[in-house]
Simulated scan of single mutants.
Amino acid sequence: MATEETYVPWAQKEGYEDLVPVPQNDAPNCLVPIAYDTMYRDCMDTFRALVAKGEKSERTLEVTQWIIRLNPGHYSVWKYRADTLLEMKSSMTEELDLLDQLVQYHLKSYQVWQHRRTIILALNDPSRELDFTAKALAIDEKNYHTWAYRQWVLCHFWSTARSLSPEDAAALSRERRDQVEQVWRGELEYVDKLLESDIRNNSAWNHRFFVSFESGMGGDDAGKREIQYAKEKLAISPNNPSAWNYLRGVLARLSIPLSSASPFATPLALNTPASMPPTEPAISPAAELPAYLAIEFLADARAEEARAQERAQDEREKAAKEAAELFRSLIEYDPIRRNYWNWQAQQAETVAAA
């Protein structure tokens, strides 16, 4: 791209002589005018000239490409560029090539991702997108925009039979069903690789939950599988908040009480790996114990039991007392949140007394 010294104004370029640049209409006596550089100001003045004419042409695409390289967040320019591409029936594949270059530098730009969605919808071909988003996540594996886009691609182009109406589901061919299932199974394998690389990647945990329970591909065994998966990861890294939140989410999704996982959490909390039940994953020798997040899990499990109206009052009071003791014990591991743990203990005691 040209520098300030080598830049040639658009009005002086061949094929642009008829365009009269339209300057920005700032307020009279503007107190703090924005100090646009020469290139950006000239590009925008030329763009306004094109818009004033309602022109959608190759030179519109040329000017808008300059602007989005200088300012990838200019949504009006993106919108006009998309309208121009669609009206001209331009090569959307070439536009994707351009976006492949731009997105890696502007991963957090809403406008870049929205434009890519527009182009993919026009192409009606998502064949590049899963590989593309994987490359983008290799740059920033927790980028919200990339994950949201990947999930949109999956839902829009690979809808499962369970997520469709009965009529649409019946119309899916066996070949298409097999293709869809293969794509979604591949997502679990992809997430597993990310978590092997970084077990605390909360974005990957979130995507695994989405694939397992929101895609329609989970099936009846998804819950049991995911509970076991979370436990296996916690046995490796028991102070991983992402995995504990995942386990809580799966249990809540299945309406299973937290106490169902207490036999697993207790050895992690007490630093007694040898007492782990044989039906549970073995604790890694490298695991950091005691796990204060396991203590918090047990406290929440007992507080949940204290709130259970179907239990006898004496059982609720006992559960509340134990929950309060567990919450207060967390002050030793997390003294910064001393007031929070004391408040949690008081809440547990208040519930049982009600």
Score class of each variant (00 low, 15 high):
residue 254 L to S: 01
residue 241 P to E: 11
residue 178 D to T: 05
residue 68 I to E: 06
residue 347 Q to N: 12
residue 117 R to C: 06
residue 192 D to W: 03
residue 294 A to E: 09
residue 183 V to P: 00
residue 68 I to R: 01
residue 288 E to F: 13
residue 252 A to R: 05
residue 285 P to A: 10
residue 176 R to C: 08
residue 5 E to D: 14
residue 308 A to C: 15
residue 119 I to S: 07
residue 133 T to M: 03
residue 28 P to L: 06
residue 145 H to A: 05
residue 255 S to C: 11
residue 147 W to P: 06
residue 50 L to Y: 07
residue 317 E to Y: 02
residue 110 Y to N: 11
residue 225 R to M: 14
residue 273 P to H: 05
residue 64 T to A: 11
residue 69 R to C: 11
residue 104 Q to L: 06
residue 233 K to F: 14
residue 37 D to Q: 03
residue 329 S to Y: 12
residue 293 L to C: 09
residue 317 E to G: 00
residue 142 K to V: 07
residue 309 Q to S: 15
residue 351 V to A: 15
residue 198 D to G: 08
residue 177 R to C: 07
residue 230 A to H: 00
residue 164 L to A: 00
residue 143 N to H: 06
residue 339 N to R: 12
residue 5 E to H: 10
residue 108 K to R: 15
residue 214 E to D: 15
residue 343 W to V: 04
residue 42 D to K: 01
residue 34 I to W: 05
residue 71 N to F: 09
residue 276 M to D: 01
residue 288 E to T: 12
residue 95 E to P: 07
residue 71 N to A: 14
residue 43 C to A: 13
residue 223 G to Q: 13
residue 40 Y to H: 10
residue 91 S to I: 04
residue 347 Q to F: 03
residue 295 I to Y: 02
residue 206 N to V: 07
residue 57 S to Q: 04
residue 289 L to I: 03
residue 165 S to C: 11
residue 328 R to S: 08
residue 353 A to D: 13
residue 126 P to C: 11
residue 15 G to E: 03
residue 7 Y to E: 11
residue 258 L to F: 15
residue 212 S to T: 06
residue 249 G to K: 03
residue 173 S to V: 05
residue 186 G to F: 05
residue 94 E to T: 14
residue 213 F to C: 08
